[in-house]
């Protein structure tokens, strides 16, 4: 059963400039994205910086207001709910951020941080508060006696655990994890990934896992959404991603990822050039400037996402022929 259904989601950021501070351009951060997330699934979103993956995640839980399209959560259209009607959904949809330093208010202790959120949503009675906070801290691998400490007294990995605890405290059923391990060292990354995996099983969470690291996404997610310049170019199952990838961009991403084996030194797939500026994207397929398989028709229109079976969708004229 689908928990999240996104239909043709669009987010444009206005660009102001000039003497009169008028809107002179717009950046299409998210450009008509549609997908569904099944209950209990982990959807990975990958892409390079500026592809709109973070904006997508934040628009989805309405930290950023969308420009167009609709978001259905558990059968309810939440796209235009006001602050009060949104409140129950706020509890059910939480977010874990990338930067373990800027994502925690430096002036609140762990206890204050959790208590504030719990009280706001009346999750537990005041009398059970301390027990509840301690149980959450234990769940994410922090000691209960650390609850009166301030964020700066923790290491990066522990701070990320606090961020996860804040999300979990509201007993959500959907969490957007926005690059939760990108800022962490390899050994800490593994700890946090394991923790998220355990919590997902224990609480039956549905996750949207945003990352630029295909290795992590491949390991952790059930399905993956590959984004390029605000468009979804491919959606597929994470199992055997190397064999099944069809879109030239996905293949390039996989090929550019250095492999941990000195004996397997293949030529890294090198894409020419850079991601085009989001201010003036190419008119047709966004990948047209760097695509090794580019044809004349790619310049004219954005290729549609075509289902190749088993939910594997690709947006490429050449592949879909």
């Amino acid at each position: 059963m689908a928990l999240v259904e996104v239909e043709d989601l669009v987010k444009h950021f206005p660009v102001r400039g000039g003497i009169l501070n008028r809107v002179i351009a717009k950046v299409n951060a998210v450009n008509g994205v549609s997908f569904t997330i099944e209950k209990g699934d982990v959807l990975g979103v990958v892409g390079e910086s500026g592809c709109g993956k973070s904006t997508l995640g934040k628009t989805l839980i309405r930290l950023i207001e969308s420009t167009g399209g609709s978001i259905n959560y558990d059968g309810v259209d939440i796209t235009n709910l006001n602050h009060r009607d949104m409140l129950p959904f706020r509890r059910r949809m939480q977010i874990v951020f990338q930067d373990p330093y800027s994502s925690l208010n430096p002036r609140l202790t762990v206890r204050a941080l959790l208590k504030e959120a719990i009280t706001h949503h009346k999750i537990v009675a005041e009398a059970d508060m301390e027990d509840f906070i301690e149980s959450i801290m234990l769940k994410v691998g922090l000691r209960a006696d650390q609850k009166n400490r301030f964020p700066h007294e923790f290491s990066g990995g522990q701070r990320q655990r606090i961020g996860i605890a804040r999300a979990l405290a509201l007993q959500p059923d959907f969490i957007v994890a926005d690059e939760p391990v990108s800022a962490l060292d390899v050994s800490i990354q593994a700890q946090v990934l394991n923790l998220m995996m355990d919590l997902k099983d224990e609480f039956g969470l549905t996750l949207m896992f945003i990352s630029h690291d295909l290795k992590v996404v491949e390991h952790f997610c059930d399905r993956v959404l590959v984004m390029y310049l605000g468009h979804v170019v491919e959606e597929m199952s994470c199992v055997d991603i190397h064999e099944n990838a069809l879109h030239p961009y996905t293949k390039a991403l996989l090929g550019a990822n250095p492999i941990n084996d000195p004996d397997d030194r293949r030529e890294l797939t090198v894409l020419e050039g850079d991601v085009p500026s989001p201010f003036n994207p190419p008119p047709g397929c966004p990948f047209v400037t760097r695509c090794p398989k580019v044809e004349a028709r790619c310049n004219d229109a954005m290729p549609p996402l075509v289902d190749k079976g088993e939910g594997h969708r690709v947006a490429c004229f050449v592949v879909n022929d």
């Binding site: 839980i61 930290l63 977010i95 208010n105 002036r107 504030e116 706001h120 949503h121």
Partner: peptide, 28 residues
């Protein structure tokens, strides 16, 4: 623009509360 302010929005706090509790104390 910091993420803890966004996190507070995600919890569902009102704007004024976030301003007083999460923003102003950090300019102390």
């Amino acid at each position: 623009e910091l993420e803890y302010v966004q996190a507070a929005t995600a919890v569902g706090f009102g704007k004024f509360y976030i301003l007083l509790k999460h923003v102003v104390p950090n300019t102390m």
